[in-house]
Computed example of a mutant assay.
Amino acid sequence: VATVAFPGTLLSTPSHYAVFLHGDTPLTAKLLKATLVDPVSAAVIETKPRPWYATALLLSQPLHFGDYGGLPLKILWALLDLVTLVVLWSGLVLWWRKHRHAAAVPANVAHAATTARGGA
């Protein structure tokens, strides 16, 4: 049992307990299962399957916080972060050079046009 929500709270109904269970394996320990329990007879009223997106979210949470894989996975994420930063930086440098070059070309063209007409 992970959590028990009493009747009338946000996680339960006004007349039932909501019991949240988790598994005993490393994979199922992250997956919560909600069950409604009758407070008088302690009978399980309803257990619905979790939506696929909730399962994906619960399984990805340890990846986000670095709980799976230990140090090797953290090193891999750090390397992937560095690759992302290099791609971002190179894109910014190319964009900056393009805009600097584009701003310089019209000035050179205007100067060439005035000198061709005999201007200063």
Rank of each mutant, 00 (worst) to 15 (best):
A2N: 13
V1E: 10
G8I: 04
H22E: 13
D24Q: 13
L27D: 13
A5I: 05
P7Y: 01
T25A: 12
Y17W: 05
T3N: 07
K30D: 12
S15Y: 04
P7R: 05
T25P: 10
F20M: 12
V19W: 00
L21G: 02
L32W: 11
Y17P: 03
P14I: 07
T3S: 08
D24V: 12
P14G: 01
H16R: 14
L21P: 04
L32F: 15
V19Q: 01
L11R: 00
S12Q: 07
L10G: 03
G23L: 08
P7F: 00
Y17R: 03
T9D: 05
P14K: 05
V19M: 03
L31E: 04
S15M: 04
P26T: 15
A29M: 10
V1P: 08
T28P: 05
L10F: 04
A2Q: 13
G23P: 09
L31P: 01
V1T: 13
L11S: 00
V4C: 05
A34R: 15
Y17D: 01
G23I: 09
L32P: 04
F6R: 00
T3D: 02
F6C: 00
V1Q: 05
T3L: 05
K30E: 13
T9A: 06
T13D: 07
K30Y: 13
T13M: 01
F20S: 10
V19D: 00
A34Q: 14
S15P: 06
T13E: 08
V1S: 09
S12D: 08
T28L: 11
P26A: 15
K33N: 08
S12V: 06
V1R: 09
S15I: 09
T13F: 06
H16L: 11
L31T: 09
T25G: 14
T28H: 06
L11D: 02
L27R: 12
T9S: 13
K33A: 07
T28W: 08
P7I: 01
A18S: 13
T3I: 07
P7M: 02
D24M: 12
A18E: 03
G23R: 10
V1M: 14
H22L: 09
S12R: 09
L31M: 09
P7H: 00
K33S: 06
T3F: 08
H16Q: 13
F6W: 02
A5T: 06
T9Y: 04
